[in-house]
Design a protein around this nucleic acid. Structure first.
Length: 502
RNA sequence: GCUCCGAUAGUGUAGUCCGGUCAAUCAUCCAGGCCUCUCGAGCCUGAGACUCGGGUUCGAAUCCCGGUCGGAGCACCA
């Protein structure tokens, strides 16, 4: 019986989370896209979206395209292109091709001209507000009566026009129930430098048009995206139909949120601007950077995506689910260290000054760490407060001590060598000679219900064992009996960590 | 307001297409126990749900109609 690999049973038991099969998917032929707009840092919602697209492409041995949806020069910023790629790499995703929508302007112009020639698009110089009202009331403006020649002439002169003065609109169906079909704008004039294209273009396609073309000419077979785009399918398929372009299969799912944590750029940006949080990587935020800083690992995001699936309900999960997944993933690979919050001194008579060596992990072989011990020890105030003279306490991985005096201030104790039932005595972590100061940044939800949480970020301090000094920024370790933390920064004599979770 | 989408334990999810095998899955959370030189991990047990009202049917979480609640869209943003 002992010869059987015990892992055999574990593998059987722990079934991997998987996503359901992708409709219309053929092995080796699936092409998906990651379509960020370079106007901010991705958050966990984007992360799940990216992961779905990545997952299916890999599952079907297909291809992933990283495509920057950068057709609004006023919104895009150069810094975000690389920043987003960095975040995607951190998430553990890879892609075969990289593309900017803004690189295909000539193609968009070409397809636009075709629509105009077909009489399916027209130049409109009406006030946007007026158009909006007309569309709302299922009415057209007179612009749609222009001749093809007139439209072409105006189209060719569009690049020289004033911003907001003219738009190219699709001849759709103003009476459609689907408001997106009511003669939507296809191109508008924007006189603003673009981070990649500079001042080269002033006539820019809107998302629906550029996306319709791109998803087809890039060969995308499956589009997985959140449901704010639900009404665009009909429109985009219609545009492609007119231009005889192939349409991909589109799957929708609801936006994903974590309770108490704003999960959209629209909500996150003002928090940063108003300095409610430090920046895009604030550990309270659910931006990928924020999660990283908090010690949430990429695999946790993957697992979360598989747990949610392409849900059409409106998932709003508790942090506890994220924490639980993360904890189970990092538990076997996190080195253990002693950290003592609010250190209370314990003078231990008979503790010979010497060097000891302790395992980094109780079950796994993660190496050992050394430290010096002497008579002067420190234990957490919370433990010190609950012990009384006459008790025996275990200094974890070291020895037992007998408490002689546990009044206010320093506790007096002596080494206790009598046999005791190890199961029945309290074990505490400790520090002794040459400890390092440690600050712990402890994030919690930014909102409790709709109220701002005034204590969303607290800082605790204490002493850590000397070997914590040698840890690298970014390492995730466990402070025993305290929680998992990620090393955030190090300076002379001080290590700052972020508390991931218990 | 209009259009579309959704609703399974506290939370998330499976099951709904093709009604019976669902006295409803799994995870998390909570409670209790075991194990452990951590308050972590692991193990065991328990508690906890089909939005409501009608209808079809021998039989409805599943099909139909209506209500309620929640979300999204109604940009010269994406």
């Amino acid at each position: 019986m002992e010869e059987i690999d015990p892992n055999f049973f574990l593998v059987e038991k722990k079934e991997k989370r998987r996503l359901p099969p992708l409709p219309g998917a053929e092995m080796g032929k699936v092409i998906t896209r990651l379509p960020p707009e370079p106007n901010g840092y991705p958050h966990i919602g984007h992360g799940l979206s990216f992961y779905f697209n990545y997952y299916y492409a890999r599952e079907y041995d297909g291809e992933v395209i990283l495509r920057f949806d950068d057709t609004n020069p006023k919104a895009e910023k150069a810094e975000y292109y690389d920043a987003i790629k960095k975040d995607l790499k951190w998430l553990g995703l890879s892609w075969e091709r990289e593309h900017n929508m803004s690189d295909d302007m000539e193609a968009y112009y070409d397809y636009a001209e075709r629509l105009i020639m077909m009489g399916k698009a027209y130049m409109c110089g009406c006030d946007p507000e007026k158009v909006s009202k007309l569309r709302f009331n299922k009415c057209t403006c007179n612009c749609q009566q222009k001749s093809v020649d007139e439209n072409i002439e105006q189209w060719l002169g569009m690049s020289g026009m004033e911003e907001g003065s003219m738009a190219l609109r699709l001849r759709g169906d103003v009476t459609s129930q689907n408001t997106a079909m009511r003669d939507p704008t296809l191109f508008r004039v924007i006189r603003h430098p673009h981070p990649v294209q500079g001042d080269k273009y002033t006539v820019w396609p809107v998302y629906d048009f550029a996306c319709s073309i791109e998803d087809s000419i890039l060969g995308v077979t499956h589009v997985l995206r959140s449901n704010e785009f639900a009404l665009r399918i009909e429109l985009q398929d219609y545009i492609r139909g007119l231009l005889e372009l192939r349409s991909p299969i589109t799957m929708q799912y609801s936006r994903f949120t974590i309770r108490g944590s704003p999960t959209s750029k629209r909500l996150i940006r003002p928090l940063i601007e108003e300095k409610v949080v430090e920046g895009w990587d604030d550990p309270r935020l659910v931006t990928l950077r924020g999660l990283k800083r908090r010690g949430i690992i990429p695999e946790t995001v993957h697992e979360l995506a598989k747990e949610m699936g392409l849900s059409t309900a409106e998932p709003e999960i508790d942090w506890s689910l994220v924490e639980s997944i993360n904890r189970k993933l990092i538990d076997p690979i996190s080195k253990r260290f002693f950290f003592v919050e609010c250190p209370t001194e314990v003078d231990v008579e008979g503790m010979k000054e010497r060097e000891i060596s302790i395992r980094m992990h109780p079950e796994k072989d993660l190496g050992r760490r050394d430290m010096k011990v002497g008579e002067r020890m420190f234990i957490p105030a919370s433990d010190a407060g609950s012990i009384a003279a006459g008790e025996v306490l275990r200094l974890k991985d070291l020895c037992n001590i007998y408490i002689d005096n546990a009044g206010n201030g320093t506790i007096k104790a002596h080494v206790h060598t009598d046999e005791v039932d190890m199961r029945s005595i309290k074990k505490v972590q400790w520090v002794s000679i040459d400890p390092v100061e440690v600050n712990i940044i402890s994030p919690s939800p930014l909102y409790i219900g709709k109220e701002v949480n005034p204590d969303s970020l607290t800082v605790l301090s204490g002493l850590g064992e000397p070997s914590i000094r040698a840890l690298d920024v970014g390492e995730i370790v466990q402070f025993e009996r305290f929680g998992f933390v990620r090393i955030d920064s190090k300076s002379e004599g001080l290590v700052t960590v972020v508390l991931s979770h218990k």
